[in-house]
């Protein structure tokens, strides 16, 4: 007979595991990836591949030679970081910037804190913000979308709807005029036919991914919903007060990285709050800060900064927003 195995209860475990969650998110990102290939051609795939490979490589190197721990590549978190990082950059980004971004994301954003689960800030966003600040020109020259263009690099670049809006408003134009002159309609924004980062363009593809993650119970609805709701509410009120100076909620929801940020970046388990109450506060904070940066800030887009700022608040939120204890309220009465 075999030796009996003795351990403490419980003796059963559900089938969930860290790699399953990570690969689940990667699967959820595939629709958006396909859309990016559709609109940006092979460039999108190239940037993706560079980001994923360099993220995995850096994690492996750091784990092997600096931390000297066990190999953490199979858990899939490095690949996911690489994928999200690539989603946040223009499709024509030079390869060396991508590699530097990956090094910062993995090295500074994740491994310097001790690896998976210990980082306070979303590593992909750390990498992205680093690249945005260090290489502002390359990071904001967006290639024009062209359907199924596999011929090569398209030199033409265009601005994102958010940038067009910001510039127009700064020149004193009215929102309705800017909207009319914009090359993309709201429907285009839904499908992804607009300038922007590789993965953020198609709201529909991202929503499909989000629904998949909800169905697989990888994420809960709280964070995305509270971000969307606060953006809609905030911009809606401003739009009602002065429709000429502030764009409407639909525009704000569909442009820029709101979909990507709210569904994939803000919901990163490691850097988001751990109670449902906390998730609401966190989501609302992200929504409000995003809109504030977009409307009054220097950058046309603010969700990356908003998420990073709220990441910083997570320990505070966790400490103050504890779940309600069973049987404690009665005691106080």
């Amino acid at each position: 007979m075999n030796k009996l195995n003795v351990s403490l209860s419980p003796h059963v475990k559900n089938k969930d595991s860290v790699p399953k969650i990570m690969y689940g998110v990667i699967i959820a990102l595939i629709p958006a990836l396909l859309v990016s290939v559709y609109f940006f051609g092979l460039d999108a795939l190239r940037v993706q591949a560079i980001a994923i490979v360099s993220c995995i490589l850096f994690e492996w190197l750091i784990q092997k030679f600096l931390i000297k721990g066990q190999n953490t590549i199979p858990d899939g978190s490095a690949a996911l970081t690489g994928m999200l990082l690539a989603f946040n950059v223009p499709a024509n980004l030079p390869w060396w910037i991508m590699v530097i971004g990956a090094l910062v994301a993995i090295g500074v954003g994740k491994m310097s804190f001790g690896g998976l689960g210990k980082n306070p800030f979303n590593p992909a966003l750390v990498g992205r913000v680093f690249m945005l600040i260090s290489f502002p020109v390359q990071m904001t020259s967006w290639p024009k979308v062209s359907v199924l263009n596999f011929t090569g690099i398209d030199a033409a670049t265009g601005a994102t709807p958010l940038a067009i809006m910001k510039e127009g408003l700064a020149n004193g134009e009215k929102v309705s005029d800017i909207m009319n002159s914009m090359p993309t309609s709201l429907v285009d924004m839904m499908t992804g036919q607009m300038g922007g980062s590789l993965g953020e363009i198609s709201a529909i593809a991202l929503l499909i991914g989000g629904i998949y993650m909800l169905w697989k119970k990888i994420i809960t609805i709280h964070i995305p919903l509270s971000i969307f709701a606060s953006i809609v509410l905030f911009t809606g009120i401003m739009n009602l007060i002065n429709p000429g100076a502030y764009a409407g909620p639909a525009f704000h929801l569909l442009t820029g990285g709101v979909m990507l940020g709210a569904i994939f970046m803000a919901t990163d388990m490691v850097t988001s709050p751990m109670s449902k109450k906390g998730m609401w506060i966190y989501g609302i904070g992200i929504g409000v800060i995003t809109v504030a940066i977009r409307v009054w800030g220097a950058y046309p887009e603010g969700i990356s900064f908003a998420i990073l700022i709220m990441n910083g608040f997570v320990p505070l939120i966790n400490n103050s927003m504890k779940p309600k204890l069973f049987g404690v309220v009665k005691e106080k009465k």
Partner: peptide
């Protein structure tokens, strides 16, 4: 694995 703070 490391705790990923999923809060489940």
């Amino acid at each position: 694995y490391n705790c990923i703070r999923c809060a489940r």
